[in-house]
């Protein structure tokens, strides 16, 4: 065990103070320290995209950042999208209605990738959607229903 350091990290607009070892990954911090298990861990080397979260509003791989680096920064995870279970974020609603998931493992990462994407590009073409989710691996759907879900979500958000 190496030395731990105090950090203050804002997650989904709530401030958390914890002591962390420098080697603790942000993904593990969210899951193990805060119990926010919506952020999934797939490959742990930045390829699968399952652990994507927003770091100061930008999508990043939480498995490639140390929690200590998030000190004084603001993180948004999939838990931060919906107000409550009856009020899903439009992207979540789109996935719900268009069957954009099967097993659901990749879904949180895909949702977090799409939040800034649809903000920047509210009316994306199918090609742009496929390009935007190219850094998130899904092994169930073949992506077709995900693409449909993004189109539906974009419509809802416009």
């Amino acid at each position: 065990m190496t030395q731990s350091f105090p950090v203050t990290i804002t997650v989904n607009e709530k401030e958390y103070k914890r002591d962390v070892e420098p080697r603790l990954l942000l993904s593990d911090f969210l899951r193990h320290e805060l119990g926010l298990t919506g952020t999934h861990v797939g490959c742990e080397h930045g390829v699968c995209g399952a652990c994507t979260v927003l770091f100061d509003g930008e999508s990043v791989r939480s498995c490639l950042i140390f929690a200590i680096q998030a000190d004084a920064h603001s993180i948004t995870t999939v838990e931060g999208l919906a107000k409550d279970k009856d009020n899903l974020h439009p992207i979540q609603q789109g996935f719900w209605e268009a069957h954009g998931l099967q097993c659901g493992y990749c879904t949180p990462g895909i949702l977090m990738t799409l939040v800034p994407f649809l903000k920047e590009n509210p009316n994306p073409t199918e090609d742009e959607i496929r390009h935007a989710i190219s850094g998130n691996l899904c092994r169930c759907t073949g992506y077709q229903h995900i693409v449909d879900a993004v189109k539906l979500a974009a419509e809802k958000m416009r």
């Binding site: 994507t52 770091f55 930008e58 990043v60 791989r61 490639l64 950042i65 990738t113 850094g135």
Partner: peptide
Amino acid sequence: IAHPQIRNR
């Protein structure tokens, strides 16, 4: 270069 999530960092 990789994906936007990687280029953001």
